[in-house]
């Protein structure tokens, strides 16, 4: 009897008998209930009076901030797309100055905190080049930052294609373009999708650091509302929810694309 019900909690492939209940629904419900209980318990122990009315008055500010975060992330994504392709190629380049520059760039960006990069870029480099617009600068920094990570992801993806496949492709008489188009790209795309989606999610969350140069994005707006109303949790809980609202569709989409691009080998 117990054994039969135990199948509810197993993956389809591991079951000894068909599940006697709608198991996806049940398991999702149980997990949600567990997390909810933890939250209810924690909040009930909290000595804190919630005053949502004060924060609700600033809802337009939250929405504007969320919009700005979306815009910043979108442009950063596009610019970093250009950068990443350039530098991924650069790391494979035969021309040494280009190769060293790419390596140097990736190591510097990955090895230093984004916070320092933002401050140095905005107050030193952008200032020297007379770029005063903090939004343009913000997009540039984010793109440079994300670009370094993404170029590494792409490089690793290309490297992961076995040499024998390329030899086979060459012996079949495929041109270099055809090799990339039919052999490398379809496989690389599938392999780098998960880390790429993860990187995009980080990019969106990292954009919150732009608040230190007063780029009026989601986090800064929430912090300002906190400063006006002295309602920390009421300001930050919607913040978490807002970020989740943007990032969840991305990881969902990535999973779907992954499935669409999976091939039998």
């Amino acid at each position: 009897m117990t054994k039969k019900w135990f199948n509810c909690f197993l993956r389809e492939s591991d079951r000894e008998a068909p599940s006697p209940c709608p198991s996806t629904l049940l398991n999702a419900f149980l997990v949600a209930l567990f997390i909810l209980l933890i939250f209810i318990f924690s909040f009930s122990r909290l000595e804190y009076d919630f005053h949502w009315a004060g924060v609700w008055a600033y809802r337009a500010k939250f929405i504007r901030g969320l919009g700005m975060t979306l815009v910043l992330s979108f442009f950063s994504l596009i610019v970093s797309f250009l950068l990443r392709s350039l530098f991924a190629l650069g790391q494979k380049s035969r021309f040494l100055p280009f190769y060293f520059f790419s390596r140097f760039y990736v190591e510097i960006i990955r090895g230093t905190p984004l916070l320092v990069q933002i401050l140095v870029f905005f107050y030193v480099i952008a200032d020297a080049f007379r770029v005063q617009n903090r939004y343009v600068t913000g997009v540039m920094i984010l793109s440079l930052f994300a670009g370094a990570y993404i170029s590494e992801i792409i490089r690793a993806g290309i490297d992961s294609i076995g040499e024998t496949q390329l030899e086979t492709a060459r012996s079949l008489g495929l041109t270099r373009f055809q090799q990339y188009r039919f052999i490398i790209f379809p496989q690389v795309f599938k392999r780098i999708l998960p880390p790429l989606a993860g990187q995009l999610v980080s990019l969106i969350k990292d954009s919150s650091l732009l608040s230190i140069i007063s780029v009026s994005e989601f986090t800064l707006n929430a912090q300002e509302v906190n400063a006006y109303t002295y309602s920390t949790l009421e300001s930050y809980l919607p913040l978490a929810l807002g970020y989740l609202l943007i990032t969840y569709p991305i990881s969902n989409l990535s999973k779907r694309l992954e499935r669409a691009f999976s091939y039998e080998t």
């Binding site: 107050y123 200032d127 230190i212 140069i213 007063s214 009026s216 800064l220 912090q223 300002e224 400063a227």
Partner: peptide, 15 residues
């Protein structure tokens, strides 16, 4: 423009 640190505010004015 809202900043975390007063040093950032001063830098903004200086620059």
């Amino acid at each position: 423009n809202v900043f975390d640190k007063e040093s950032a505010c001063v830098l903004e004015v200086v620059q």
